[in-house]
Design a protein around this nucleic acid. Structure first.
Lengths: 197, 197
DNA sequence: AAAGTTTTGAAACAGTGTGTTGTCTTTCTT
DNA sequence: AAGAAAGACAACACACTGTTTCAAAACTTT
């Protein structure tokens, strides 16, 4: 039985590529990064790159997949937890915490030259979970209404996260989750409350 | 005095390029579109493309700029209107209406292979305007709170618009603006109200 | 420690898109 | 009708791509 990445050489190579990629992504857009310069920057052979990835976008996808798995893992305990304990705030806080733990990757992935669509993927992982909880309490609303509300707060959460990352994640993730909860519940009434941030 | 695009030939060429581009964008990602195939598809010479644009991304930027100007123009009357008449709902409705008028372009630009970042640009145009109105009523809130709330509802509006576009813009723009207003004001309380959609 | 396996490096290869240039033709303007 | 502007066409050097081959290095197994 073999491990998937048992070989030390493989791990080193992939790390070199990954770091070089994230490094280049700080300076330029993904479409301006060539495989040639990436390999030179990483100090590996171009042929070696092709034995791991098909192109630059495949590389990004794999890195994002790893990140997504991290988040998934972080949400696992929430899924298996007591149903009553599964509130939107715990889910949101879990995601926020996970983003913080991977902030080095996040800052790049979600930065100026990062992949905006990636955040949608992350947030959608907790989406179903959150909304099921909500819809229990609002059975009166029509599917269309829920759909649009859903779209609004999903995107809202993403915007909040981006702002949070932008500001260096100085607010605690629980605090941010509370804020999110409050905005969702109260709308602009949120601004009438006392938050310490 | 010369007009900027007075020449009929220029207009035709640019239209051909633009249409071919939007057409290709329905089928594939922008990074997979080569200038060569674009020109073949448009039926123009590759050299001609370079006399108008520097690369594919320059082409996209110019198209997006035109679109942004349309929105800007649509917002002009709102800016010069009576301050009291300037409510977030009128601004939002104006933007929605403009998007609808440019739906052919929107569907592509905001579609699967479109530019997600572009919507942020659009929404940010009405952002300042909206928030100034709001902050008059919530002077008690801290700048940080407003900042985060701002981030949330901005992104929320974008999400709502995307959903709207996704659903073929069947809801009237005034209706959508009302919905937006209601969600912002009431949060999830929105789902307790009666909307006909 | 030796033999076999896997990964990487180096170099070469044809293929393709890029960006530019020069010439000639068509179209617009006056 | 004449000059100006824009496009068509072809050619060019150049860069990156994706693949392949062979040898060296690193890992695994016995």
């Amino acid at each position: 039985m073999k491990k998937l990445t048992s070989d030390r050489r493989t791990r080193i190579t992939r790390t070199l590529i990954r770091n070089a990629f994230l490094d280049l992504l700080k300076k330029k857009k993904i479409q301006d990064i060539t495989i040639k310069e990436l390999c030179e920057h990483a100090g590996i052979n171009r042929g070696t790159f092709y034995s791991h990835f098909t192109d630059i976008y495949d590389l990004r996808n794999q890195i994002e997949d790893e990140m997504a798995q991290e988040v998934q893992k972080a949400m696992e305990p929430l899924l298996h937890a007591n149903q009553n304990a599964l509130t939107p705030i715990t889910v949101t806080a879990g995601i926020f915490e996970c983003l913080k733990n991977n902030s080095d990757l996040c800052v790049v992935t979600l930065g100026e030259f990062g992949d905006k669509a990636f955040l949608y993927r992350i947030i959608n992982m907790g989406r179903q979970l959150c909304m099921e909880t909500y819809s229990q309490y609002y059975q009166h609303a029509s599917p269309t209404e829920i759909e649009y509300f859903y779209a609004f707060i999903s995107a809202g959460c993403i915007g909040l996260m981006q702002k949070w990352l932008e500001n260096g994640m100085t607010i605690r993730s629980e605090e941010l989750a509370k804020m999110t909860e409050s905005i969702i519940k109260n709308g602009i009434g949120f601004l009438s409350q006392d938050f310490h941030c």
